Simulated scan of single mutants.
Amino acid sequence: MSRVRTRPTRDDTRDKLFEAAARVFEEQGIGGASIETIAAAAGFTRGAFYSNFKSKDELIIAMLEDHVEQSIGRIRDLLERHRNLPDFLDALKSMNRGAQDPLGRSPLLHMEMILFVARAEKRRPELAKRLRARRKLVTDIIETTARNSGKKSVLDPTWAGALVLALEDGFRLHRLIDPETTAPDSFFRAIGDLQRAMGISAA
């Protein structure tokens, strides 16, 4: 009879540390949260933390990387199933961004972590790498949906991707700061306006 594995895998451990860190960061702040508290919240020892991450900064970088990878994976899956822009946007609106992703459930913590990393200039290339990956994703979406619509965009796709990403980040921040005057669908309304300006509206 085969033995049942009871010890968590490395991925299981990392996922639990991500979830625990998100809770602790929200409760105590990123700067005030200790490695011991994060490990305890995940049900692990301090040694288990250090077997996965060298420092709290490395944990944060890994959480941001995991968030971007999960987001890109989910959105590319959507694009495979919905290759024209109206259908893709409808699917994107209903996508569960928080599934197995603590930063997807907490946009404010996500931004706080980005700013925390950005304070250290030597860490900014880590953020830049993920920003470029997000821009490429949006550029690919624009190129694919424009091609499938049979229309050529009047804007350079790379520049259009940068615009779309800036709109998303900007409206997310505005929504956090002033939800009363920033409607939940502000980003998608802006995308509709940009879509028409680019000449790739649905026929």
Rank of each mutant, 00 (worst) to 15 (best):
F44Q: 04
S55Q: 09
D66N: 14
P107M: 03
I142Y: 00
R123Y: 11
V68I: 14
A118M: 12
G150V: 00
A197R: 04
D66A: 15
I177W: 13
K136Y: 02
R3M: 03
E19S: 13
L163T: 13
G47M: 11
I191N: 00
R105K: 11
R135C: 12
E69A: 15
D15L: 13
L89F: 11
E168D: 12
L85Y: 08
D12E: 15
D87L: 08
L194K: 09
D11V: 11
A40D: 14
E180W: 01
K122I: 08
V164C: 01
Q70T: 10
Q70L: 08
H67F: 12
A21Q: 07
R10L: 12
R3S: 02
L79N: 03
G98C: 06
M111T: 05
A162C: 12
D11R: 06
L85A: 07
E36F: 05
R3Y: 02
H82N: 06
A33T: 08
L92P: 07
G47L: 09
D12S: 10
E69T: 13
R10G: 10
A41Y: 06
E180T: 03
P86K: 04
I75E: 04
R46N: 14
A22Y: 12
E26Y: 09
N52G: 07
M95F: 08
G29R: 04
R196Y: 09
I38Y: 05
